[in-house]
Simulated scan of single mutants.
Amino acid sequence: MIYDLHSHTTASDGSLSPAELVQRAVERRVDVFAITDHDTTDGLQEGHETIAEMQLPLTLINGVEVSTNWQNHEIHVVGLNVDIANPALQAFLAEQRNKREERAVEMGNRLAKARIIGAYDGAKALAGDASITRSHFAQYLVEQGVENTFQNVFKRFLAKGKTGYVPPNWATIEQTIEIIHQSGGQAVLAHPLQYKLSTKWFKRLLTAFAEAGGDAMEVGQPQQGITERTQLATYARDYNLSGSVGSDFHRPSSWTELGRNLYIPKDCTPVWSSWPEIDTKRVSTAEQSA
């Protein structure tokens, strides 16, 4: 079975609607799939409804990706199998989205001082009803011809220390793991190599995450080499964490795709090993989210 437990829709900064995304997952032969939008669960209902209406052979897991602040680093934690009706979870996510909005306004102000006028309004228009993210700013700046790629926009304007960067005021890892657990979910450290920490600081992060009750870490992503995957699996075992996999899909591209190259080394315990047995008919879990 192919698992892909990290993806995004237009409910946050993805380019595909939930309906389009679950259909693409099926096309890519994914069996078990999680939608994990940034600080919102708004896309899940449409995903479940599409699977039910089209009778798609896909099990959809309720998920969310939460931005946290740890030692002045922005660390992302994915919640899997969360109860989206949990009042405490929804209140927590609403506060996170308020923080996103405040940060976005300040980013717009800083870019305006750099003579890039209208960036906030442009990014807000692109986000629509979704939570505004740096990706929306990057998309707007590319469309305006300021730079020609997302990567160049981040390097020049939106990365830490650059003109448009605003330090986030996210929740702590401890607060995030606690609320995920309160909603019945599992807390997964997302894309651990993207933080570009030294080995010393990475081990500190894993220690803090494990001590706060974290359940798993992502050990498999599409672009990953065998050495990186093996090393992450070793770290997962050393810190008593399960392993998860995810494409972190945002939009169709040449370097990442749903379900591509997603596997866990045999000596690493999968995060789904504690889940109820997946039905062999791969029926959607829509009824569980109702």
Rank of each mutant, 00 (worst) to 15 (best):
I2G: 00
Y3F: 15
Y3M: 11
H6C: 04
H6W: 06
L16Y: 01
S17Y: 13
E20S: 07
L21Y: 03
V22D: 06
F33D: 06
F33Q: 05
H38F: 05
H38E: 05
D39R: 05
Q45T: 13
E46R: 04
G47I: 04
H48Y: 15
E49N: 13
T50K: 09
T59G: 04
E65L: 08
V66G: 03
N69V: 04
N69E: 13
N69W: 07
Q71W: 02
Q71G: 02
N72F: 14
I75E: 10
N81R: 11
V82Q: 04
A85K: 15
N86V: 00
A91Y: 02
E95Y: 00
K99L: 15
E102K: 09
E102Q: 13
R103D: 10
V105Y: 08
E106K: 15
A112K: 10
I116H: 06
G118S: 09
G118R: 07
Y120Q: 01
A125R: 12
A130I: 06
A130M: 07
A130V: 07
T133Y: 07
T133M: 11
S135K: 09
F137T: 05
A138D: 03
Y140T: 01
V142G: 06
E143Q: 15
V146C: 00
T149Y: 01
Q151Y: 00
F154Q: 03
L158G: 02
A159K: 00
G161L: 14
G164S: 03
G164K: 04
Y165V: 09
V166R: 04
P168A: 11
T172H: 08
T172R: 10
E174A: 13
I177C: 11
I177F: 12
I177K: 12
I180V: 14
I180H: 04
Q182R: 14
S183P: 06
A190S: 12
H191W: 13
P192E: 10
Q194A: 08
Y195N: 04
Y195A: 11
Y195L: 13
L197P: 12
T199V: 08
W201A: 15
K203Q: 14
F209N: 09
M217W: 11
V219T: 13
G220Y: 01
G225D: 15
T227L: 15
T230Q: 12
T230P: 01
L232A: 08
T234Q: 15
Y235V: 08
S242R: 12
G243F: 09
D248S: 05
H250D: 11
H250N: 10
S254F: 00
S254L: 00
S254Q: 12
W255H: 10
W255C: 00
L258Y: 01
R260S: 05
L262A: 06
I264P: 03
P265N: 14
K266I: 08
K266R: 15
D267A: 11
V271Q: 09
V271Y: 07
V271E: 02
W272E: 07
W272S: 08
W272V: 02
S274Q: 15
W275V: 03
I278H: 13
D279W: 04
T280V: 09
